[in-house]
């Protein structure tokens, strides 16, 4: 009898919560409010303007209406967590990813009741270390995230999202339009090598390395390499901060030459999309030098910067961010 009553109560609470969430989604007066976890307001934040800028862009470019002021939560037991459908967490902005049991329970309840969690910088290749300004397409969640969700859903791992997943095409499909890159009909803004690598390998069809966790059959949590760095705009609508590209380049004799070339740093394994591992060669204090790919190919890392490259990266990350938030809202 008691159990039946408890179940009835839980069903009732869940129904109420779903109604609240639905209300929030349809809230026409204020717009949908995105929550952002901010443990402490005193700490240094990497990209404080990123989320408001992204929400403003979504308001401009789609018919959706978001409140451009994120609701900052310092604790997941905050009752307002249950009032809003999407929680955004920039993992690099958190002092750590350790949550109390109450917070983990609240997070589980939130996910089970239809909430969506976006863990930006929830993927971070080991060779990046404490370097926060890099986005690298590894295909597994960072260890702290794995540890956290092991405590919430021990039997449910994060799985890579396939390139044809709906999340990559909710609003925008493919890479930013090449018209933005053209100066004249026969001239592009990006060097050919850069554009070729980006289109074919870095962000094929406008996708990126995402892993996701399903709760009750629904994709309820996703983790990605840091994307917020590509969302911010200044008062003239110009993108901030500048972003450069890391490109893999080959040459005729690299497969032999890089095997023997002088190197005194450390090597790091990074999981690829196909589950195999790249070996990254990196020297302390320097950017990563080159990579040994699992099929025996060796390529060197080259870095390209410039306004046009930065603008392109920003356009990509913003479209990706919009796709994620709108996917979360629609599914």
């Amino acid at each position: 009898m008691r159990i039946r009553n408890l179940l009835l109560l839980l069903i009732f609470i869940s129904h109420c919560l779903q109604e609240v969430l639905a209300d929030q989604i349809n809230n026409s007066e204020y717009g949908i409010r995105i929550m952002q976890l901010l443990r402490s307001e005193k700490g240094t934040r990497r990209y404080p303007d990123a989320l408001p800028s992204l929400l403003a862009t979504m308001n401009e470019e789609t018919t959706s209406r978001f409140d451009t002021d994120p609701l900052y939560l310092s604790d997941l037991t905050d009752e307002r967590l249950m009032e809003n459908p999407i929680l955004y967490v920039n993992c690099d902005d958190q002092p750590n990813l350790e949550f109390s049991m109450e917070e983990r329970d609240a997070l589980r309840f939130y996910l089970e009741q239809g909430g969506f969690v976006y863990l930006d910088a929830g993927i971070k290749a080991s060779f990046l270390g404490s370097d926060l300004g890099h986005s690298y397409a590894a295909w597994e969640e960072r260890p702290e995230v794995r540890e956290l969700f092991d405590q919430i859903y021990p039997d449910q791992p994060f799985l890579p999202l396939p390139r044809n997943h709906q999340i990559f095409r909710t609003v925008y499909k493919g890479l930013p339009n090449n018209k933005d890159l053209k100066i004249e009909a026969d001239q592009k803004r990006l060097p050919e090598t850069v554009l070729d690598f980006v289109e074919k390998e870095k962000w094929p069809q406008g996708t990126y390395s995402f892993v996701g966790l399903k709760v009750k059959g629904r994709l309820a949590c996703v983790a990605s390499p840091i994307c917020a760095m590509g969302w911010g705009k200044d008062e003239f609508g110009a993108w901030i901060p500048p972003i450069s590209f890391r490109i893999r380049e080959s040459a005729d004799d690299f497969d032999e030459k890089l095997k023997l070339a002088s190197f005194s740093g450390g090597t790091y394994e990074v999981v690829r999309e196909d589950g195999l591992k790249d070996v990254i060669y990196s020297e302390s204090g320097h950017r990563p030098m080159w990579v040994q790919e699992p099929k025996g190919r060796w390529r060197i890392f080259k870095y390209y910067s410039g306004e046009e490259i930065s603008n392109y990266a920003h356009a990509f990350y913003t479209r990706l961010g919009m796709n994620v938030f709108l996917y979360a809202l629609l599914n």
Binding site: D49, P52, A56, D69, K233, E235, F236
Partner: peptide, 10 residues
């Protein structure tokens, strides 16, 4: 305007 951005803040 739908919230604060740099321009609106200025």
């Amino acid at each position: 305007s739908r919230g604060m951005n740099s321009q609106v803040t200025t």
